[in-house]
Each structure stands twice: as structure tokens, then as C-alpha cells.
Design a protein around this nucleic acid. Sequence first.
DNA 1: TGCATTGATGACAATGTGTCATAATCAGAT
DNA 2: ATCTGATTATGACACATTGTCATCAATGCA
Lengths: 202, 202
Amino acid sequence: MPKITFYNLPEDKKEKLINAVKKEFSRVPLYDASISNIVRSARIPRGSFYQYFEDKEDAFFFILNGIVINNNNNFAALLRKHNGDLFDSMIDFFQYIIKEEENVQFLKNAFLNMTYKIENSFANIFRNRENNDNFREISSLINTSNLNISNDQDLFHIMQIIFTVTIRNVVEKFAKELSKQEALGNYIIEMNLLKNGLANKK
Amino acid sequence: MPKITFYNLPEDKKEKLINAVKKEFSRVPLYDASISNIVRSARIPRGSFYQYFEDKEDAFFFILNGIVINNNNNFAALLRKHNGDLFDSMIDFFQYIIKEEENVQFLKNAFLNMTYKIENSFANIFRNRENNDNFREISSLINTSNLNISNDQDLFHIMQIIFTVTIRNVVEKFAKELSKQEALGNYIIEMNLLKNGLANKK
DNA sequence: TGCATTGATGACAATGTGTCATAATCAGAT
DNA sequence: ATCTGATTATGACACATTGTCATCAATGCA
């Protein structure tokens, strides 16, 4: 988390800084990014950067969370829109991610270097801003009647699986530079396989 | 790929070097590792490192591939053992990965920082050493009669899904420091969900 | 006005990276 | 045994980056 000093900054300076940070992390992935570039580009002295952020990671995750949480289009909203249908909501969500234009480069770098920590940051999508006790909140919105579950644990695993496969499809899109159509096509195939099961029903 | 010079090295020196590299990447993940540490620990001059490897990544992937390809226990062998049953083979494979002791720390660092590139390196598990045209090779070993597929593309997606979920489970094991039992338990639940489908059959 | 708190600044030590000119070694030909 | 070209070894060096810290400036409030 950025330090208080950062939040106290006048809007325009804050924005200048955010832009510089975004720019650098759009250029290269987290571990290739350099603070020197950021301060150069934001025209602030080096010491100031450390007045605002703990380190590179701190700045990175601040931006990432911003993009993820950003608009109200959080996952709960999608679930409501689709009357609790998990699969339809995910397909909607997938399209939303891959059509994002403003931060493509940033997201590309993030997805192609999706470490466990970064992936967890993305999991915030499934959290409500107000409520950290996300699983309850979200699971209550899911129409479980058309899911193959016998308990809460199953639901948890189902969400885990869907989330993982989704991320993987986004990564694939970036890595292989698939068109939106291709990526969506693949994703829908996989969602259907997940729905119906990979094994044959006799 | 290491340079020829590396392969020309006398066995003992090569081994000393490999150990030093492993040690450093067991200490910290790829991007925190330092070549300085490696040469210090291997007691070779800095210049020599660059005689053998392109850079840090090069050394890292050399070791990683070594661990992955290593023993003949490749995926094809597992498939044969299980008469082509993809799920049983994967569960066997999963256990094999999490019971690995010798390179735990190295693998932990690798899994918790599983970028697209690293993940691809793991995909080598599904490749035959001799044959690069892996998909053909492997898919011919899979008993597709109990899979829910209508064409080759489906099979590809199924393998993609299973691979992704498997990796994710290994990552989870390391991240949350699950016991082998817990990790295996979770994995089996998810494999069954995948088999039978996440959606309800009416 | 004066004091305290907060913020700004950039020089600096520490560490790392990759290169390169030079030296050592080796292997084969004579 | 000696010469020679090719390969390998070596470590100093230029350059980049990081995080810190002593110092200075600004702000606000009594």
C-alpha cells in the first residue's frame, strides 16, 4: 500500500506520478521496471518516490488494484445481471477483460508474468469493495441450482477452477496475440467443456 | 540454452556450477537471484559465468528443464501405466510432483513465480524428449473413448484445462503450505469436478 | 512569530550487470 | 619439442540501479 504521503498529494501531482508509474509498467514487466525511469518521467526527485511508495512492487500493485477494482463493473454486478449464472457471467467478464483498451500494455505485462501474488490481486475482482468476507457474499449471488455441488467446498473449488481457466485464457490471448474472436471462441469451448464435464457420460 | 563451452566443461566443474546455480535459485526466485552469488559460490570468475550462460534466465531454465525432463518418468510413461486414462495419470503425476524432495525449494520458487515462460517450460513434461511434435504423440496414448470430445481441438482444450488446474493446485500447495494429503485431497476433488462437469445434469 | 510536523531533495554507499582486453591453456601440425 | 591458431579463463571496468539519510523547505497552528 502506498504511504499516507502519497494520498495527501495534490491531485495533479498524484496523477502525474500515476501516469509515470503506468508508463513504466506498460513498457516492461514488474521485474524489469526501473524506479529511475519512473522518477525521471514524473520529474520528481528519487527520494520522493520512496516517500510515496514502499518500493516498485508497491507502486505496481497500487496501479493493478486500481485497474481491477476500478469501475463498478465488479463481479457481483455481473452475477446480478445474469441472474446468478456463473458461466454466463464469466463469459461476459472475459470479454470485458480482453476488450479493455486503455491499459492493454500494462495488463499484457501483468498477465504474462502472472505470479501467485499478482494472480491473487486479480482475485479481488471477486471481492466486493466493502466486504472482505467475499466468498459468502459472492456465493449467495450464484445460482447454485444448476451447479454440480453437494456442499460449500465444492462451490469453492468450482470457482477456483473457473477463475484459473479464465486467467489462463487471457494469458493465452496475450501470449499468442489472438484476436478477440479467437480468444473468445477458445474460452467458450473451454467453458462448455467445464460445464458438461471432460469425461464421457455413459 | 547454455553455450557450448558449458557442455565442454569437465564433469566436476560442471557439477560445481550446477550446484551453485541451484543453490541460488533455491534461495530466491529468478528475479531476485544474483549472478554474483552464483560465481561466489561456485568460485569461478565472473567472466566465466558469461562464458557458459547467456544470463540468469538461461541458467535458470537450464536447471528447470533438467528437473522437469530429468527422469524417464515423463508423462507418456504415466499414460502407458494407466492404460491411457488421462485423469488417473494426472493424479499420479500430481503426487509425483509434490513428493519431490530434492529440489523443493527450487520448485517452490519456480511455482510461486510461474510466469507464462516458466509455465511453458513445464509443458515439456508433456513432450517426449525425442519428439517435438508432442501433441500427436501424447494424444495417441490417451484413451479418448472415455473423454467428452468430438474432435482434436476438444482434446487439446481438455489437456489445456487439466494442465492449468494441475499447476494451480501445485502452486496452492506451496503457497499455503498444505500437507501432501490436503493438497492431494483438493486436487482429486477438482479432478472429479472436471470429469463430471461443473454444471448440473438435469 | 515561533515551534513542530510533514514533505522534498539529491548525494551516496552498496550491489549488480555485462563487456572486454589480456592472459592462459590446449590440440594438432611440423 | 615447438609453434600456432583456437578456445577458454580472468577480473577490472563502465554503467545502472536501489534504498537511505542528513539536510533543507513548507505548512499549519498556538
